[in-house]
């Protein structure tokens, strides 16, 4: 949620803005060559939000330690540049427990539109099934009620879901 989520949260909040990055750090971890379902990124586990193009952590992926306003430009652990905007079919919140360890994913770039919140340590493994939809930001928010699958464009770490 935006900077002023403190005073108006959930269904009635309208817009989102960017916030200060959580932790700035470099990471040189590399991804294993293969990850078997249903253990998404099991060998990575390093404090990032992960999103992969296929269910159960398969296919191309991106990871973020901080907030991202545009999933169109992101990288995997090997530094490969990816476009995960409207491409992700699995997401995993592997953040370090702390004040901001839950994460909201948004329909639009720049933390705009409808959102859905993913609690620390949890994952959505199979978004193409269509069970998970954008349910935050109010029914008038762009993307509200739509499937998360191939529809997430940005994310933000938050203090709780």
């Amino acid at each position: 949620m935006g900077k002023f989520r403190i005073v108006l949260t959930g269904a009635v909040a309208a817009g989102m803005i960017s916030v200060t990055p959580v932790v700035a750090q470099a990471d040189t971890a590399t991804r294993p060559s293969a990850v078997e379902a249903p253990q998404p990124f099991s060998a990575l586990a390093d404090g990032f939000l992960y999103a992969s193009a296929e269910p159960y952590g398969q296919g191309a992926y991106c990871r973020w330690l901080n907030n991202s306003e545009d999933w169109g430009v992101c990288t995997d652990a090997a530094g490969n540049s990816r476009n995960m905007k409207n491409e992700a079919s699995q997401m995993w919140n592997n953040g370090v427990p702390g004040p901001y360890d839950d994460v909201k994913v948004f329909w639009d770039t720049s933390h705009a539109g409808a959102w859905r919140c993913l609690t620390n340590g949890s994952h959505w493994d199979n978004l193409p099934l269509g069970r998970e939809t954008f349910n935050g930001g109010g029914s008038s928010a762009r993307g509200y009620g739509q499937s998360l699958n191939n529809n997430v464009a940005s994310h933000m770490w938050v203090d709780n879901c």
Binding site: Q39, A43, A45, D46, P97, G121
Partner: peptide
């Protein structure tokens, strides 16, 4: 990096 992954795996679990 290795210890960082281990810390998160130990905390969140895997497998």
């Amino acid at each position: 990096p290795d210890r960082r992954r281990q810390w998160l795996q130990t905390y969140h679990g895997s497998g």
